[in-house]
Amino acid sequence: MNKAELVSKMAALSGLTKANAEKALNAFMEAVTEALKKDDKVTLVGFGTFMVTKRAARKGRNPRTGQEIKIPARKVVKFKPGSNLEAAVGKKK
């Protein structure tokens, strides 16, 4: 599902217009982005949690040359699904 399909589905489920559903989705994405930039967690009970974790520096290899390279430490975004989401996805059809 891409963004346009998600906006259409949100509009259909909520009774909003597609324009308003897109504004709501954009606002949600902006709010989550701002929170994660501040190293905050965003928890949606039953759905899941967005969080920032730190990945340590490590050594890697250039696959083309085999030369060892240093990969710097960085922050990465992770998502941990909530129990309701896991239950909904894990159900057998």
Rank of each mutant, 00 (worst) to 15 (best):
P72V: 10
T43P: 03
E30N: 14
D39H: 14
L85H: 06
I69N: 01
A35N: 10
L85E: 00
F47P: 04
M29I: 07
A24E: 00
K80W: 01
V45T: 12
A27I: 08
A35H: 06
T53K: 15
K23T: 13
E86S: 14
K38V: 00
R55Y: 04
E5L: 02
T53M: 12
G60R: 01
K18V: 04
M1I: 14
R61I: 12
S8R: 13
R74G: 06
F47S: 03
L44R: 00
K3Q: 09
L85C: 08
E34C: 08
N84I: 13
K59V: 05
K93A: 15
K78E: 07
L36E: 02
G60V: 04
A87L: 06
R55Q: 13
M1P: 12
A87H: 09
K37P: 04
M10S: 09
V32Y: 00
A56Q: 11
A88T: 14
F79K: 10
A31Q: 14
N2T: 08
V32H: 00
D40F: 00
K59F: 11
I69W: 07
L16E: 08
R61K: 11
E22D: 12
E5Q: 10
A24Y: 09
N20I: 08
E68A: 15
L16D: 07
L13D: 15
A12S: 14
G46N: 04
R58N: 07
F28G: 05
G15K: 11
L16C: 10
E68N: 06
E34Y: 04
E68M: 03
A88Q: 13
V76M: 07
N20R: 13
K37Q: 03
N20E: 15
V76Y: 06
A57T: 06
S83D: 14
P81W: 08
A24G: 13
V89C: 06
G15V: 07
K9C: 06
L6S: 02
S14C: 08
V52H: 05
A4G: 05
G48L: 08
N2I: 08
P81L: 11
G46F: 04
I71S: 02
V89S: 07
G66V: 05
A73M: 03
L44T: 02
L13R: 15
E30D: 15
D40K: 04
L6W: 05
G48N: 05
N62C: 01
A11I: 09
R58I: 04
A4E: 10
A57C: 02
G46I: 04
L25P: 02
E30W: 09
L44D: 00
F50V: 03
K75L: 13
L36P: 00
G48A: 05
A27K: 06
R58T: 13
A27C: 09
V89H: 06
K78I: 11
A88F: 00
A31W: 10
T49C: 01
I69E: 00
V45G: 02
L36M: 06
A27N: 07
K37E: 02
S83Y: 10
K37T: 03
A11H: 07
K91N: 10
K92G: 12
E30T: 15
A19C: 01
F47Y: 12
M1Y: 09
G82F: 02
T17M: 08
A11K: 01
G48K: 03
F47Q: 03
Q67G: 10
A73N: 11
P81V: 04
V7G: 10
V52W: 02
K75G: 05
N20K: 15
F50C: 02
T33L: 06
